[in-house]
Design a protein around this nucleic acid. Structure first.
Lengths: 88, 88
DNA sequence: TAGGACAATATCGTTTTTGATCATCCGCAT
DNA sequence: ATGCGGATGATCAAAAACGATATTGTCCTA
């Protein structure tokens, strides 16, 4: 499923134009991205929760050179599936 | 951020009623849940991708009794943040 | 608005992810 | 429909998530 599939579903179930449906999807996704940008967690019962956590891992690995690489800390988005997504 | 915050954002930016805005959010979330239920992966550039991966059955631990517990295999939703969510 | 359903937390050993990079694949805006 | 920019996969070691359960906290439907 790609973004367009969601847009088509909206279009089909609401009668909205494709452009309007796309706008809806973008609005929602942008709201979520913005919240996460502000280090805000998102919790949607029955779907999932997203939360910003500090990144602590310090080493990775370079395949080609087969050597360890330093990884600078930062932030990550931690995803936790909700109930509906746990019992698939 | 909770579901209602998204609904309010939609309401504010589109002028939709709260009920209609809620319906939009539900539609989108349900589309995604349905896709995952069908073992379909979801990929939305700039946001994230979700994919069903098999869960290996193994062992866990019961805190109270301090004993091992059997964990039956199954499916999990694997989340991978997109570019916009990686450079927060 | 209130209560019922759902999520967070803590714990420990095993399973899974992370992270850089390049080549290949593909979403999606034009 | 086409191309550009973004996503995937592979690799290895270290770091983090997962799982059951009861309790505490909170989302969200009626």
């Amino acid at each position: 499923m790609i973004k367009n599939d969601i847009v088509l579903a909206i279009e089909r179930k609401t009668g909205f134009s494709r452009v309007k449906a796309l706008k809806m999807v973008e609005l929602i996704l942008n709201s979520m991205k913005e919240a996460l940008s502000n280090n805000e967690k998102i919790e949607i019962r029955g779907f999932a929760s997203f939360k910003i956590v500090p990144k602590k891992s310090g080493f990775g690995r370079d395949i080609r050179r087969k050597k360890q690489i330093k990884i600078k800390g930062g932030k990550r988005v931690k995803f936790r599936p909700g109930q509906d997504l746990k019992k698939l």
